[in-house]
Simulated scan of single mutants.
Amino acid sequence: MPTQRDLEALAERAGNLLLARGDWLATAESCTGGWIAQAVTAIAGSSAWFDRGFVTYSNAAKEEMLGVPHQTLISTGAVSEATARAMAEGAIAKSRAQWAVAVSGIAGPSGGSAEKPVGTVCFAWAGPDGVEAVTRHFPGDREAVRAATAALALSHLITRLEGATGSA
């Protein structure tokens, strides 16, 4: 399980890449409850590249704060790539960020189903190069799922930033 120190190292690396580009990051979090934003804001100087974080735990918050379409939540559920995608797009639309990461999942210990078991997390990363969404399944208890989610969210953001060219 990634430690807080691991998450902060990833956040610092992402921050250096964002700062070099002159770009901003926003987060849209559900199952992590702001853990990604917490790792980011643990980095001194993150105010130069982190614009804001949205903790949208309820469906109403996803709709009101990020503009996730009600029909998306009804048809695909809160834990879906479509919802994560809409969350990431909404985070960019409602901020000055060029980059966003969004997560929505089932951290447990309850709330899972046969179709979406505990440990299911949907991610989306939005940036000048488009939006990408994936679903992953993590083992372990609630803390392990949430920590693994924050780590993957940040590490794939780094991959996207390293692959991006030029400034936004």
Rank of each mutant, 00 (worst) to 15 (best):
L17E: 04
G33A: 11
E115N: 15
L17G: 05
A88R: 00
Q38C: 10
M65I: 04
A124M: 01
G140A: 13
A144C: 02
D141S: 12
S75I: 07
N59G: 01
R52I: 10
A39T: 08
A60W: 14
I92M: 10
G90N: 13
G45P: 11
E132A: 02
L25N: 09
K116F: 07
A107C: 08
E115Y: 15
S110N: 15
T83P: 10
I92Q: 08
N59L: 06
L19E: 14
A133Q: 07
G119T: 01
T56K: 06
T135D: 11
D6P: 03
R52P: 14
R146L: 07
M65A: 12
A150D: 04
G119H: 08
Q71F: 04
L66G: 01
V118A: 07
S47K: 10
L161Q: 13
S104M: 07
G53W: 05
P117S: 08
V131E: 00
A11G: 06
A144E: 06
G111S: 14
H156K: 08
A39L: 03
M1G: 08
K116P: 03
V55H: 09
A168F: 10
G140E: 04
E89H: 06
G22M: 14
T159A: 10
E81A: 05
L157P: 12
T56W: 09
Y57F: 15
H70W: 02
A100T: 01
T149Q: 04
H156S: 06
L66Q: 01
E29P: 06
R96E: 11
R146A: 05
E81C: 12
M1P: 05
A9D: 14
G140L: 00
L19Q: 15
E8H: 14
R142A: 03
A88D: 02
Q98H: 07
A48Y: 06
A86W: 04
G77V: 12
G90L: 09
A164F: 07
G77T: 11
G45T: 10
T165R: 12
K116S: 07
Q71E: 15
G112D: 12
A60V: 15
I74E: 14
K116G: 07
M1A: 11
S75Y: 01
F50I: 11
L152H: 13
A164T: 13
P69V: 03
A93C: 03
S155C: 03
I74C: 09
G140C: 09
E8R: 15
A37T: 02
W24A: 09
A88I: 02
A61H: 07
S113N: 15
W49R: 05
A133K: 01
